[in-house]
Write a protein that binds this DNA or RNA. Structure first.
Lengths: 229, 229
DNA sequence: AAATCTTTGTGATATTATTCACAACATAAT
DNA sequence: ATTATGTTGTGAATAATATCACAAAGATTT
């Protein structure tokens, strides 16, 4: 099998998508083929098979993949069988929304600390009895509560000050929503998500159609490559 | 120059990141080199130059790029000079957060309609006097207000029903936050963002370090390739 | 004005990711 | 059993993306 090779980044991202789809599947569906998976998710069937084959021979020729087994395997590959302690920094509307997002707890991400500036007017508890802690205590709390991941939803003005504290806090990974590219260090994995960027990508595409280039855009060129959608 | 070639998807996404960085730059900085840009954003300088060269010869040899000119150019390339009418479907916490996100209006995305189920208990106005419209009226409002982009922040249970309505509404682009992969059609560009997936990617990486593979992961293999971070 | 330093733009190369195409296996039907 | 049908796993081919390396050109120093 394929397992000796390093799975591409792109493969890992797709695993999440496969898993989400499998989880939403009716319990009656016991087996699924790469063909069916690919069709529903607009991927290439060979790609689906190759993605899965990086981690083992999960399928059965002539039959397909056991949904149950596949879910278990992907859960394990993504490390979702382990509980991860998560903190959220910056409890504005977005932070609040994430704190209450039910999808996280389902995947074993345990939101166990919320940080904000003390000065801010806020209810001291949100949702299911989560307190808000002063951000100055972040380094201590990260250690005490063994927080693995911090989600940053601070306003961009605060990011410089906060990011220094976060990057040296001993946390292992950061998911940054502030519109500022945080760079990973040797010890801390950073993943940046920018909501404006996502909209801007759509804007670019709309703009292409509004003002077609002189080169006469063909279906192929400006059509929508499935893997990005 | 390069302009005849089709710019890669990846290039377009980076343009957003360049622009955001340039916008945050102090007004004193008049010129910037690909070197400096790349260093701050953890890209390769040649990549920065190539990205920009797809759209024209914006730089000056021996000097660099005019910050002002570059901002103007990227704005134009991404179509941010045009106002786009945006609607948000599903006014839960996330929808609310996006409705009030100041970054959108700055980039000429005009949030001009909020949709939700009428039955839901909600204030009829949020933030700067935005009303919530019953989602049944969506097709009509999209046409009347000439909405270009719809942002979907509905719960996953509702996505099937809503997506049919959205995809046939005449809207040109959709940004979907529901944990369900919506597929683009010929007429509608869809871009999916899944918040769980982003966390799961970090989880995968943490898991790699917890349980190193038998193959003895080297720095190179499991180190962090800059372009993803 | 020649030499030096800088930085762009881009061919050439390297790396990464996707798709094709088919042998190997599994099941079901005859 | 043999044939027909379906599906995986994967080498080989292709495509997309990133990086290197350097000529061309602007700026600066001598």
């Amino acid at each position: 099998m394929n397992t000796k090779l390093i799975p591409p980044q792109a493969t890992v991202k797709r695993l999440s998508i496969y898993l989400r789809f499998l989880n939403a599947l009716s319990k009656e569906v016991k087996m699924i083929s790469s063909q069916e998976l690919a069709k529903r998710l607009a991927f290439n069937p060979a790609q689906v098979r190759k993605d899965l084959a990086y981690f083992g021979d999960f399928g059965k020729r002539g039959v397909g993949y056991s949904v149950k087994k596949l879910k278990e395997q992907i859960n394990k590959i993504l490390g979702l069988h382990k509980t991860r302690n998560v903190g959220i920094v910056g409890i504005g509307r977005l932070g609040m929304a994430l704190a209450c997002y039910p999808g996280f707890e389902k995947k074993n991400f345990k939101i166990c600390a919320l940080f904000d500036k003390q000065s801010k007017q806020l209810p001291s508890k949100i949702g299911d009895a989560k307190e808000i802690t002063d951000v100055q205590l972040l380094p201590k709390i990260v250690k005490d509560k063994e927080i693995d991941i911090l989600i940053l939803t601070v306003p961009v003005e605060a990011i410089k000050e906060i990011s220094d504290m976060v990057m040296t806090s001993g946390v292992k990974a950061v998911l940054n929503f502030a519109p500022f590219k945080l760079i990973s260090s040797e010890d801390v994995h950073v993943h940046n998500v920018d909501l404006s960027t996502e909209l801007e990508f759509l804007s670019y595409r709309l703009n292409l159609y509004d003002e077609p280039q002189k080169e006469d855009p063909s279906e192929e060129v400006y059509g929508i490559p499935t893997q990005l959608l």
